[in-house]
Design a binder for these strands. Sequence first.
DNA 1: TTCAAGCCTGAATCTCACC
DNA 2: CGGTGAGATTCAGGCTTGA
Lengths: 365, 365
Amino acid sequence: MRDSVGTGLDLPLDQVMVGDCIDLMRRLPPASVHAIFADPPYNLQLKGDLRRPDDSLVDGVDEAWDRFDDLPAYDAFTRAWLAEARRVLRKDGTIWVIGSYHNVFRLGAALQDLGFWVLNDIIWRKANPMPNFRGRRFTNAHETLIWAARGPESKYRFNYAAMKALNDELQMRSDWFIPLCTGQERLRDETGAKLHPTQKPEALLHRVILACTAPGDVVLDPFLGTGTTAAVARRLGRRFIGLERDPAYAAAAQRRVAAVAPIPEDAAQVTAGKREQPRLPFGALVERGVIPAGSILVDRARRWSATVAADGSIRCGRAQGSIHQVGAAVQEAPSCNGWAFWHVEQPGGTLRLLDEYRAEMLAAR
Amino acid sequence: MRDSVGTGLDLPLDQVMVGDCIDLMRRLPPASVHAIFADPPYNLQLKGDLRRPDDSLVDGVDEAWDRFDDLPAYDAFTRAWLAEARRVLRKDGTIWVIGSYHNVFRLGAALQDLGFWVLNDIIWRKANPMPNFRGRRFTNAHETLIWAARGPESKYRFNYAAMKALNDELQMRSDWFIPLCTGQERLRDETGAKLHPTQKPEALLHRVILACTAPGDVVLDPFLGTGTTAAVARRLGRRFIGLERDPAYAAAAQRRVAAVAPIPEDAAQVTAGKREQPRLPFGALVERGVIPAGSILVDRARRWSATVAADGSIRCGRAQGSIHQVGAAVQEAPSCNGWAFWHVEQPGGTLRLLDEYRAEMLAAR
DNA sequence: TTCAAGCCTGAATCTCACC
DNA sequence: CGGTGAGATTCAGGCTTGA
């Protein structure tokens, strides 16, 4: 099982640490965090000012932390922090990295080269992107997140049912439509200027954290900035470790997180899929007399019928075995979920699925 | 000026050449094509069968051309063909490369390393992607195209106005919503089996070719497959050079292209707007109570306010009509995109753009 | 002829606990 | 670590079928 609480190791939980993220990660024990979200410098390579058609100046990214001498320098930096991140990540953990076309190919290639296993690339479609003022390119209306497991064989967590619930009971797709971080949510200084040039929307982190962690899990952000990851992790009942080089950003993040109230514990739980629910053998239903030995099971079309034995096996003609095995055998299918295949005839002549008996029993505990 | 006709050099125009694309490109003169579209193998690394929940088998990619020993082998292949492509590309030309998360980071990094200058990454959002049958990842609902100039200083062609016209007079964004290639458009053999496992939709190539070429320009496709690039280029009055290793694919492409009639020359200049995404009338938001009748709409500066009527029209003073008409009227402008002009006052006092409501609704379907 | 219901399929790195 | 078996798992769109 996953440890959701302390592992006995000293993790600096729910803190913002100021310093170089590579140095700070080196101090963390190996395989200690459940998830990592990283929003590294994009290496934008902007030249000169950008002005809108009305001649107003675009307040773009022009910070020292976003300047690298060249692509090899950026690659070296990327591989250094990703290697530390991989060491710190638990075997069953996953990492999210966000970037734009300036850097995302470097990030993705580095992830693959270091042994991470890409699970999805996710497109954050911006509701309100900045237009292309010069009309020389397409409006850059998205950013890309890469979601990766530690390796190809990793048993990672994906809260499938929770994501499906978020999306109106349809599978969550790889394209996410989320507005930019603006308005009240955007942190500003006394003059009203934005505190950080690339603050991410909380809605984005909400989905990320909900997708791959359980309450109590530890989320590491090596480029915390003004603390969106930490704030959302705290609100959702997760623990966080925030690393940030700039003391001013770190201080702002601290203040921001301190003001966040976690939601009630039950609200922080993710919708459990059937995989997460406790297993109940069919034999238990027979033992307890819910479906007594001797009962007749039929498929939905009443094409086949089978008799329940006292040990929970069933028989249909010459086929005998578990509800799954016999279901597969009669259909000549490679496999079959017997819970969703066999029914019991009800007094009124209607059929009731085995899965409904199971659900009832699980609910009653 | 750009040459749109012959350069005096012998180019094998409007032909499909059978052979290895690197060998064939070597025979082409340098700086000779205006645009390149490349759909290289994705290096999918599929293991075993995949079955749908109904036990039917997914007909996946299982072709020899998609198998590589490892990532370094794939990288070597990628860099070899991209280097030739760059040599063949005119100084003012651009290249498009399409891939998925399996290979697109390798492609992008190679492009950058070889000196190409990325202009955009474009997301092809699929209308009807295959679901994730095992519920272990997000539905992989997109592919990525990288659009790049030959170098940072290149004077490349971008048909800004044509793209804007295609998009209902809004700047074309980097996320494109286009259905898969299915039905009549999909090439099949006598048995009804698909001729090529990864045939791209013509709508995708239509937009690509229209974005960066003029009539008469030469479009090179080093991985022609069954000839989508050639067919669309011909229809749009462009010239093409198609390279394909597999004689069967090449023959199918030849037959396909031969059946294509170029559109009239004037139509090739500007293409009529084709709506790839379902339109959502403003009235639908009113009907469904997202923006109830009686709501007040204001512009961003709160200079004007308008009242929403039950039929989806709005009124501001004497002006009454659609959100677009009234927006234009109050500003005394010839036209107005009401979705990007009107806002709804939120409980917190912030404004929310109509476009965000619409987008939310479209995403939720 | 029309319409509704059902069928087929798409670039896919697609399970996991237990012995 | 490998083998075994329970049992979890799908959306949209075009086409076909049949009333």
